[in-house]
Structure formats: C-alpha cells, structure tokens
Simulated scan of single mutants.
Amino acid sequence: MLDTHGRKYISPLFKGAANIFLKLNMTPNNITIIGFIIGLLPFVFIYFDKPLIAVILLWVSGFLDAVDGEMARISKMSTPLGTLMDVTFDRLVELGVILAIALKEPKSMLQLLFLTSTIIISMTVFLTVGALSRNKGSKYFYYQTGVAERTEGFIFFTLMILIPVHLQLITSIFSIIIAITALQRFLEARRILK
C-alpha cells in the first residue's frame, strides 16, 4: 500500500540515484545483484546480535531494489531476466531475515513458519496473476497492489529485528496483514481473469 500510494513522494530520490548509476554505466541488473548481496548481509548481523546494522543494510538493499526498477524504466532496459532476478532475490532476502530470526528466537518458530506460509501464498497469487494477465503497468508484468507491499514488509522486518521481546506479536500481525493481502489479490484475480 505504501509503495503504491507513497511512491510519488519519494520517486525523485529513486530517479536521481538511477540517473547517477546509469551515468556510471551500470545496468539495472548490476544494481539488482549489488542490492541482493547487501540484502543477504542482515542474516549475519542478526545472528551476531548487531540489529541496527542489519536493519540499515536491509533498507539499503530495499532502496537499491527500487532504484534498479527505476533504472530499467528510464533506460528502457526492462527484461524478463531482470524481473525474475528482482522477484527471486526479494524473496531470498526476506527468507534470510526470517531464518536468522528463527535461529536466534526458536520459541517463535511457529509464528515465523506461519509468516513464511502467508508470504508463499501471497506471492503465489501475485505471480500467477502476473503471468496470466496482460502487462498493464510500467513494470514488466502486471503488478497487483495490496495492503502489504515491500515497504510494509521492511517496516515489519525492522520491528521484528529491533524489538525481539515482542517478536511473536509483531510476526503474528505481519502474517495476518499478508494473509489479508493474499485474499485481496485473489478476489481481484477472480474479477480480472474471468
């Protein structure tokens, strides 16, 4: 929801960074890979009790995730491979955070398993609708909006990392919001895929 409705306010920041990287002869896929590598580092810092560094790296990877898409649109270099890398790497970064937290907080394993399950269901609907729909947006595939998009995910992951004393509650709320998003996307799919 924040990605869809708030993007217009921070889009100039993404465009500015995208133009800088393009002037440095970097491609969107270069930035996707750099963002992915940075996005894997929070696993290490969560595990070794450096939550603030983990959160900063998570948000830097998220920033680069937005910038690579902006670069692809500006340079008209959107490709199926870039889309595949983007979606896959996003999930791997999320799984890295969840796995690191699970290793540190085994008492929250059930909530983390439920969170992972809701992410899988929501992404299954999202990707299936994207594959079955004509491209209606500026991305390479049809993009379904929802209550929980990337920014909401980063906010909840940040809370999970920084406030482990309330991990079970935060994770449960996050899971419910993702489940609502999956249902919302499924109902939209019923309407558009008839």
Rank of each mutant, 00 (worst) to 15 (best):
K8E: 05
N25R: 11
L13R: 12
R150H: 09
P106T: 04
R185F: 14
L132C: 12
I10M: 13
L24H: 08
L167S: 03
I34L: 14
I173W: 08
R91K: 12
G82P: 03
S175Q: 06
K23Q: 12
I178N: 03
V87M: 07
I53K: 02
G137A: 03
L113W: 08
L132V: 07
L57T: 02
T128S: 10
I163A: 07
L169A: 14
L81I: 14
V165P: 00
G62M: 13
A72I: 12
R134Y: 13
V147P: 00
Y143P: 00
L110F: 15
T118L: 08
L110K: 12
I31N: 01
Y140P: 00
F43Q: 03
P12Y: 12
V93C: 06
F186Q: 01
P12G: 10
I98F: 15
S138P: 04
L84H: 12
H166V: 06
I121P: 00
I37A: 05
Q144E: 08
S122T: 00
L22M: 11
R134N: 14
A148P: 00
L187V: 15
I98A: 08
F157L: 14
S117I: 02
L99T: 11
I37M: 11
T116N: 04
V60A: 11
F89L: 13
L193R: 12
T151R: 02
L110R: 07
L127G: 03
L81N: 03
G39P: 01
I46E: 06
L57K: 07
T118G: 01
G82N: 04
G137H: 08
R185T: 10
E152W: 12
V93W: 03
L24G: 03
D49N: 15
A66Q: 10
L162K: 06
R73I: 13
V125G: 00
L103F: 15
A66S: 14
R190W: 09
I161S: 03
F157K: 05
R150C: 06
L159H: 05
V87D: 06
L127E: 08
I20A: 13
T151A: 10
T128A: 09
L187G: 02
P28K: 09
D65L: 12
K76L: 11
E149G: 05
L132P: 03
A72W: 07
F63L: 15
A66K: 10
I56F: 15
Y143Q: 06
M160E: 05
